[in-house]
Every structure is written in C-alpha cells, then in structure tokens.
Design a binder for these strands. Structure first.
Lengths: 139, 139
DNA sequence: TCAATAGATGAGAATTAGTTGCAACTGAAC
DNA sequence: GTTCAGTTGCAACTAATTCTCATCTATTGA
C-alpha cells in the first residue's frame, strides 16, 4: 500500500529532493492509482485524502517527479496531460475512442522496427510515442 | 501551383462547403507549404500574401478542412498543433529534438503489427499516432 | 441579375491548461 | 533548536484555442 510510496520517497531523498507533506501525499495518490489521471484529478484525489495541496503544487510536483523519473507524462489527443507511475516496463497505449478507456500494450517487434528506421536515417531514438486510437470490433 | 488549390476548392464545393475568399486563400497557403506550419504561421503567410484573414477564421477553417479530410492535424509534444495537406499517402513522423526538423517516414510492417495488436485485443484501429523523437547519431 | 438566407467572418471576450512571481513557510542538516 | 535553500499558496499571467454576436457574403432560386 503505502509501501511503494515509501520507497519512492526514499528515492527522492537520495536524489536530494525534499520530501514535503505535499509531495508525500501525491506519491501516495499516484501509487494508489491504477488508471491514468490528469493533474486536476490527482488534485481531487489528494484533497479527498485530506492532503491540503494546491493545484499549482500538484503541477510543480508532477514536473519534479517526472524529472526524477518517478512518473511519466501522457499526452493524448486534445485532452489535458495524464500521468502514470514509471516503475513499470516500457509500454505503449491503446485508447478506446468511444469509452476513453486506456489499455497498455508492448510489442518488441515494433520497438525494434522503430530503432531500425531511425538508424537507417542516421538517427537514434530519444523517446517515442505510439498511440492506437481504437474501437471495439462489431461495436 | 494554384492548381491543386483549385482542385481542393472544387472538392469543398462538392461537399457543400462554401468557398469563401478566406478559405480559398488558406487553401493556397497550405498547398504551397512544404513544411508543417501551425495556425499562427499559416495566418502570417496568409497575411503576407495579402489575404486579410483573422486568426479566429484560420482556426475555424483548419477545423473545417480537417473535417473535410483535406488536411491533417499534428500534435507534437508540447508545441502548438501543426498542419499538413492530406493528399499524400499515410506516413508517420520523426522529430529531431535538437533542431525541431520533422522527417516523414512509412513502414508497412509497423502498420501491420499495429493492426494485429489491436485485433488480438478485440479492437480495430480508428487512427494512430507514431512519433519518433530522435537525435542525429554522433551528433 | 438580383433578392433571400444559411452559413461565414471579425473583433474581442472567454476558456482551458498550465506557469510564474513573490512573500510566507519548512525539511533537513548542523 | 537554528538556519536557509528549497517549497508552497495564492493570485496574476500566458499561450493556444474557442466562443459570442453583430455584420457580412457565397450560393441558390426567381
């Protein structure tokens, strides 16, 4: 439960980043989130947990945590940015355009092909973004 | 030259969309653009051509043209949306993170893999987004 | 060719999502 | 405890885009 959040706190402290009440609260909220909430939603959840964090601090903290590699930012088409814990293996996203549901997936062959394409043109990949906007078959 | 723009005008008219002075001007600007300009840049180019179009109309027209399938919207990480003529074969984008340069590419194998992945999970792809953020090797 | 009108435009206000300045706080180290 | 660089809250700000509404105009039909 708070276990993962505690580990993350330690990682921050080790990196010389202060663990304030607000940051600890947000780490807990993020660790407890199975979905991909945006800043406003994280703020709501933190408040619901009695955290006492301003929205500005939520934004600042998200940026900080991203810099520390603790979370990742997702920017789907035309919605506010969403966030997810980064302590997982790399994956891409499939977004159901009807329900908004987000499904994660990985495919090594695609990863390899991407690297090949970049290499062929004299580049190396810094990062990428692959999103499949999908609809249930047979709807 | 203005040839393609004229053909696009006819397509719009056929679709029951009015071809106003402003829309015609923007079609010309877009047809003449080899790069991937954003709304402000298209406005600038239209003004430079003596078009007399407001920025609000540029935005409105871009949305209209997108709906008509004449242009496509690109939303790279954290920049204003860019646009490109849609009368080409489908392709994805590689963005040089150092220079901002955009390179187009296609790869049938990746396309096929994407469709397979979606199908395996019971979905069909409505559209997708694949962007490689890259850096020149050796740079 | 002209009148009628549904649809388009311009100007600026409004909205959305996120950022920033600054004075008041507070972890963490000593 | 004291210190102080780093952090926070609030409100003001910014950037990109959308909206409102009074005024125009491309197209249709006579």
């Amino acid at each position: 439960m708070g276990n993962r959040a505690t580990r993350l706190e330690q990682a921050l402290r080790d990196a010389g980043v202060r663990v304030t009440r607000q940051r600890a609260a947000l780490l807990r909220v993020i660790a407890a989130s199975e979905d991909h909430p945006d800043a406003a939603e994280l703020h709501r959840r933190a408040e619901a947990a009695g955290a006492g964090v301003s929205l500005a601090t939520v934004y600042r903290t998200l940026t900080t945590l991203q810099t520390q590699g603790v979370i990742e930012k997702l920017e789907f088409q035309g919605e506010p940015a969403r966030w997810e814990a980064a302590d997982q293996r790399h994956h891409d996203h499939m977004i159901d355009v009807d329900t908004g549901e987000v499904v994660e997936f990985t495919n090594d062959r695609i990863e390899r092909l991407q690297a090949e394409i970049a290499a062929e043109m004299g580049y190396e990949i810094v990062h990428h973004r692959l999103e499949l906007y999908v609809r249930r078959r047979g709807g």
